[in-house]
Nucleic acid binder design. Sequence first.
DNA 1: CGAGCGCGATTTGTATACAATAACCACGCA
DNA 2: TGCGTGGTTATTGTATACAAATCGCGCTCG
Lengths: 227, 227
Amino acid sequence: MSRASEHAYAAIRAHVLSGTVAAGEQLTEDQLAQITGVSRTPVREAVRRLEDELLLVRSDTKRLFVADWSRDDIEEMFVLRQMLECHAAERAAKRLSREQIAALEVLNRDLTAAVEQSPPDVARFLEANRAFHEAIIDAAHSPRLGQLLARLVEAPVVLRTARIYSQSDLRQSARDHDELVAAFAARDGDWARAVMGSHLRRAFHTFARAVGPKTDEAANDQDSGEP
Amino acid sequence: MSRASEHAYAAIRAHVLSGTVAAGEQLTEDQLAQITGVSRTPVREAVRRLEDELLLVRSDTKRLFVADWSRDDIEEMFVLRQMLECHAAERAAKRLSREQIAALEVLNRDLTAAVEQSPPDVARFLEANRAFHEAIIDAAHSPRLGQLLARLVEAPVVLRTARIYSQSDLRQSARDHDELVAAFAARDGDWARAVMGSHLRRAFHTFARAVGPKTDEAANDQDSGEP
DNA sequence: CGAGCGCGATTTGTATACAATAACCACGCA
DNA sequence: TGCGTGGTTATTGTATACAAATCGCGCTCG
């Protein structure tokens, strides 16, 4: 994507994730154009992408709002991500070269180092974690799978990127990654799939804990405002 | 989507699917604007959607081409679709109301009637088939799942919508749907998943047969033109 | 003869003006 | 008071002009 458009995308995304606008709040293209310093044309392109990633949503009359993720939304997202990423892990187990497996080890050493600092360096953890998962998805060698996962993975990492993680959460993640590397080294697709499954399901519960208790209600209407 | 934009989307899609432009051929936004009778702005929006659906692709330098689906692309797509749609069938089995199950029966009666004509009415079959699968996905009640599947399902149905199907293929599809309805009526998610799995895997082979033999080669470069 | 280079033509990207549509508010009427 | 209804403002959608990037081709120079 091109300069202005890409910039608008990053800026709007950062703006939304910074939390300076509340979930459910309306945004206008003009506003975003001013914030990003480009015209509405590239803003509209950026907004389309962010809609795709479900960070923004439109009302039935095309007005734009910051998306409001319920616990059920997050669970749904993690279920899909688990399904797809387990598949990716299984394929990756058959396809990763020795060099790629070594590279995963290096990535996870960095991740572990970030975790064992005190206090843990969460930003560095997140970046290493992202790179680790991305490497596996790339190795699965299924471009459409990668494309589908891109939408799912990006969204929630985002969701208030901060004090969700306890150090024990982070340590468990690092251990999961170690076990994944072991499964890859053994070329055991079933093992890799199983580890990835528990890894992501635990991640879901970490998020769910942060976002609040189970709702059992749908109640995720963005549009109708009646109480 | 808005009037011009929606029209451009439909027109470009039809244009590509009609086969009047060859796979791999370049398109320009101006061309498409002329064809569709709207300006480049809505054309660009439509093109974005079609890129998303993988009907169009961009070279590394942003030039636009008609996508060229290899057999491996089709297989990848069906594998993903199977994974997601089996999940949808399993969820649907737990959620479909008696009325919705009855509606599926009606849809499949229409599909069967289309199949049993001579010659079979393929267009009517395709439409009933689409509606049947869509109803299941809706009943799964997972909006993101629906969104992901939309991209996967649309693309290949498209791919030269015609003389791929023998009457026996069509009849088997109708029988699969009947069995799905039975699984739903029994509220048996495992059964539904299994039937959906074989249904889609068979569909893949029908497509694969039409598009040619297994390649074992990657060779799906859109950009580099050296022979 | 071939590899790099420059320049006109083509194509995509961005800004801006204007058109269409939807929300808002105030007013009048039952 | 409650509810339509008209006009006014805010917001999104489209067209168009222009800017930036890219391509293709012929040319020069080694």
